[in-house]
Simulated assay, not measured.
Amino acid sequence: MGNQVEKITHLSYEEVPTADPNGLDTDDGPRIGVSYIFSNDDDDDLDNPNAKGEGDPEEEEGQQYEKCNELEYAVFYRGECVYDRRAGDVRIYSPENLLNKCKAGDLVEFVAKSQYPHWAVYVGDFQVVHLHQAEIKNDFLTDASQGRRGRIVNDVYKFKTLNPEAVVQNAMEQVGTKDRDLSWRNSECFAAWCRFGRREFKVGGEIRIGKQPYMFRIQLSEKKSHTLEFQSLEDLIMEKRRNDQIGKSAVLLELASHLNPEEEGTCCMSRPKPHAPPPPN
């Protein structure tokens, strides 16, 4: 869109900056994540015909969601777990069946193969409020899903939750907000802000200076993981969503050069117990 800052092409893992100014990993610490200036990633799925429910229904059903290609994540802020997602923890439903599970104030995530996850706030009466195409909209859940399967994701973030009435009010008050008036870079940041009310989900909600307080752990296998550091939660969310869009197989390929036996001790660590702080660098 003409009034938005042009998107930045994201770097591969081999190009991600390290703590060393010369670009070399010299210790066992995590790598530093890339800061994003602006990206409206939820618009990228508009070019995918499966997002609109076009084509052969049986073929689309097979492309909708690949559980085996979904990554597991844990996010820590100064040692405290603030996000934890394990593949298969939450059941996936068709949009019609999801309606029977939702209560006002719930967060809903729509997922499909090779697409960014799309988040929405269920506000009752079969409707959701969500950020889509640079505007906060109030749509029927089945329309907002664009044929994708969905799940309720109230518990992946570990922040204190607002009461359902406040969540719905936060969402409804923003309907119609668009373009430069938006305070969120994607649908997940907007929906999470509605439920938790935390400034960390807003654009510029945290100052990006000094030490990176967020640790983003990507679980690659039962005993291997890769960790990145970020200065802000919104930057971390952008990277998480990028990984979800490309899928586990592509992430493993990006990290292949960091997973060989010679470098295994540098970036592959055992997964901590749920909600436990990461081991020291």
Rank of each mutant, 00 (worst) to 15 (best):
E264W: 03
G247V: 10
S257K: 15
H258R: 09
E264N: 01
L253P: 01
A256Y: 05
G265P: 00
M269A: 05
C267D: 01
L255S: 04
I246V: 15
P274M: 03
S249M: 07
E262I: 15
K240E: 05
K273T: 01
P274R: 03
K248S: 09
M238Y: 08
E262N: 09
G265W: 07
E254K: 12
L252Y: 04
E263A: 09
K273M: 02
L252M: 13
M269T: 03
E254N: 12
P261K: 06
R241M: 10
C267P: 00
N260C: 05
A250Q: 11
R241L: 14
R242H: 13
G265D: 04
E262D: 11
R242T: 07
R241F: 06
L253T: 14
S249D: 10
H258D: 07
L252P: 04
L252A: 05
S249I: 12
C268K: 00
S249T: 14
N260K: 04
P274V: 02
V251D: 02
H258Y: 10
P274Y: 01
C267N: 10
N243C: 15
S257R: 13
S249H: 12
L253C: 07
A250G: 00
A250R: 12
K240Q: 12
M238R: 14
L252R: 14
S270R: 11
I246D: 04
P274F: 04
E264P: 00
T266Q: 10
S257N: 13
A250W: 02
C267I: 04
V251F: 06
L253I: 11
R241W: 03
T266R: 14
S270P: 04
L253Q: 10
S257M: 07
E239A: 14
Q245R: 15
N260H: 09
T266L: 11
P272G: 01
V251P: 02
N243S: 08
R271Q: 02
L255N: 03
N260I: 09
L255T: 02
M269P: 00
S249E: 14
G265F: 10
P261F: 13
V251K: 05
I246G: 05
E263D: 07
G265T: 01
K273P: 00
C268T: 04
T266E: 03
R242I: 07
V251C: 12
R271C: 01
L259Y: 07
M269W: 04
V251L: 15
S257D: 14
R271P: 00
N260L: 09
M269R: 11
G265K: 11
N243F: 12
I246E: 06
E262W: 13
T266I: 10
Q245C: 14
M238L: 07
K248A: 14
S249C: 08
R241N: 15
E263V: 06
D244K: 11
P261G: 03
E264V: 08
H258M: 10
R242A: 08
R241T: 03
M238P: 02
C267S: 14
S249P: 03
P272S: 01
E264L: 12
R241I: 09
S249K: 15
S270H: 06
K273S: 04
L252D: 04
D244P: 03
E263W: 06
M269H: 15
P261A: 08
E262Y: 06
S270C: 07
L255C: 08
S249L: 12
K248N: 03
A256M: 08
E262K: 15
G247E: 13
K248H: 14
E263G: 02
D244M: 13
T266A: 08
